[in-house]
Amino acid sequence: MKTRIEAITRSVVITTLLVLSLFALSAQAATPDPTGLNADALMRKASNIMVTGDLAGAIIIYLQIPAPGPEGDQGQFASSRMQAARLEFAMKNYSAALTVVDELLAVYPHNIEALQFQDSVKEAMMPQWKRLMQDTIKFVPHLLKGSLMTLLLVFFTIIISPIGGLLIALGRIGKFKPVSRLCWFIIWLFRGTPLLLQLFFIYYGLPAIGITLSPIPAALIGLSLNYSAYLAEIIRSGILSIDYGQREAAEAIGMSDWQAMRRIIIPQTYRVILPPVGNEFIALIKDTALVSTIAMVELMRTADQLFNASFNITVLGLAAVIYLLFTTVFTFAFEMLEARVGAYEKR
C-alpha cells in the first residue's frame, strides 16, 4: 500500500513538474504571442500561404510577428517586415509598403536593406514626368561633357577651315597653273566624297602608310579638309562677285595684288559669303556627329552610349535639344554678323 501511494505521489509530482516545466517553457514564447504560435512557425505559415498566391493573406501573417520585446529580437521581425513590404510592393500598394518599412525603420533606423527599399518604393511612386526629369538630371552632365568635345571640334574647324578655304580659293583664282590645278583637285576630291569615308581613310587608312593619328587630330583634319573645300568655293564665288572696278581702283592708287585683296576685295566679300558660310557652319555642327564612328566620344557618341545602357529614349531627345541649342545660337550669331557687315550698303 505504502509503495502504491509512493508511486502515485511520485507520478503526480513528476506530472506536475512536467506540466509546470511545459508551462514555463510555453509561457516564454506565448506571452508576446497572442496566437500561440512562435515566430519561426509564423514565418513558415506565411510563406506557405504566399506560395498559394494569397499575397494579402501572407502579409497578414507576416505582420503578426511581433516587434522585439525587452528580451531582444526573435530574429524574424526584420525579415518578416521586409517580406510584407515586398509583397505590398508587388501588389503595387506603394503607400502600404512604405508604412511597413517605416515600422521596421522605427526599430532599426539604419537597416540598409530597408532604406534602399524605401528609396525604390518612393521612386516607383513618382509620376512619369518626375521620373523622366530625374533621368534627365542624371544624363545631362554626361551629355554636356560630350558636347564639350563637339564644341571643341566645331571651334577648331571654324578657325582652320576659313583659312584653308581662303588659301584654296586664292590658289584656284591665281594665275599660277600648277597651284590652280592642285586647288581644283582638292576641292573636287573633298567635295566629291562622303565626309564619313574621308574620316575612315584618315583614321583607319593612313596607318597603312605609317601615319597613325589619334582620334582628335584625325577628326580635326578630316573636318577641316572637308570644310575648307566647301568654304573655298564659297569664298571664290564671293571674290568673283566683286566688281572688277574695285580691283582697278585699288591698283590705281598703287596697291599690290595682295593689298588689294586684303584691304579692298576680301572685306567686301563678307556680306556676300556670310549667309552660305553660316549655312556651312550649321551643317558642321551636325557633321561632327560623324566622328563618333572613329572612336571620338562627343555628344552623339555619349548619347548613343547612354541610350544603349538605359534604353531611355529621353537621352536622344536631350542630345537633339543640345544640337538645336548650338545651331540656334549660330543662326542668331550669323544674323547679327550679317546685319553688321552689310551696314555700309543701304537698301
Binding site: D243, G245, Q246, E248, A252, Q268
Partner: peptide
C-alpha cells in the same frame, strides 16, 4: 601708279 592718279567713269569708290 602712286604718282599717277586715276578717276573712273563708274567712280569705283570702296563701298565698305
Amino acid at each position: 601708279r602712286t604718282q599717277i592718279g586715276m578717276v573712273f567713269q563708274h567712280f569705283n569708290l570702296f563701298p565698305h
